[in-house]
């Protein structure tokens, strides 16, 4: 029986956070191992992976790791920075632009020097968080992304609800 996967369509989240979640979920579909069959369930409005009646994942990072079956680097400095710095910014409102710019710069300069296959789940997660914070900057930094990442970006862009604030940006 296929595992049920849902994208983030919640209306109260910031656009960048929704985009990061949806990009990770789209990446989960792209990088899913062959032994797992996933079907998208549009009935749910929040990110989740229903593995069984008693096993549910609501965290997009873990959904990606589960699909890819890649749990390496959980305690790495890269993963810590991705979650404790970049993702915290995605959850917060009114973070100063200068702080965001510094965090993106560190992410690109220290952890995301290249995006080439094979890409670890840890790198995909830090890429998604960085991209969601400043898509333009990351696009300029990586003019040529791997095919699976490009496909996932298209899906995430299509599926993430737009809001007025995002349009203004």
């Amino acid at each position: 029986m296929p595992i049920q996967l849902s994208f983030d369509k919640s209306k109260n989240g910031d656009h960048a956070l929704l985009f990061a979640n949806n990009l990770k979920i789209a990446l989960a579909i792209e990088y899913c191992t062959k032994d797992v069959e996933i079907s998208v369930n549009d009935d749910f409005k929040e990110p989740q992976l229903l593995i069984s009646d008693s096993a549910r994942l609501f965290d997009a990072n873990s959904i990606l790791r589960y699909a890819k079956n890649d749990f390496e680097g959980l305690n790495s400095a890269e993963s810590h920075y991705s979650l404790s710095s970049l993702e915290v910014i995605l959850h917060k409102k009114d973070v100063p632009d200068q702080h965001i710019a510094e965090c993106i710069s560190k992410s690109l300069g220290v952890y995301l020097k290249s995006i080439e296959e094979p890409i670890s789940a840890t790198k995909l997660i830090i890429f998604a968080n960085t991209y969601a914070l400043n898509p333009q900057h990351v696009k300029e930094h990586f003019p040529n992304l791997p095919e699976k990442v490009v496909k996932a970006l298209l899906v995430a862009e299509k599926i993430t609800p737009r809001n007025l604030a995002a349009v203004k940006k």
């Binding site: 096993a55 994942l57 959904i63 749990f71 404790s84």
Partner: peptide, 26 residues
């Protein structure tokens, strides 16, 4: 197992991103 590792990753993520209070019900 794969599910257990994902569950461990999930709660690690919840703690590191400071989202624990929002996840008490879960």
């Amino acid at each position: 197992s794969r599910e257990q590792q994902a569950q461990a990753a999930q709660w690690d993520s919840v703690l590191k991103t400071g989202q624990f209070q929002e996840r008490l019900d879960d």
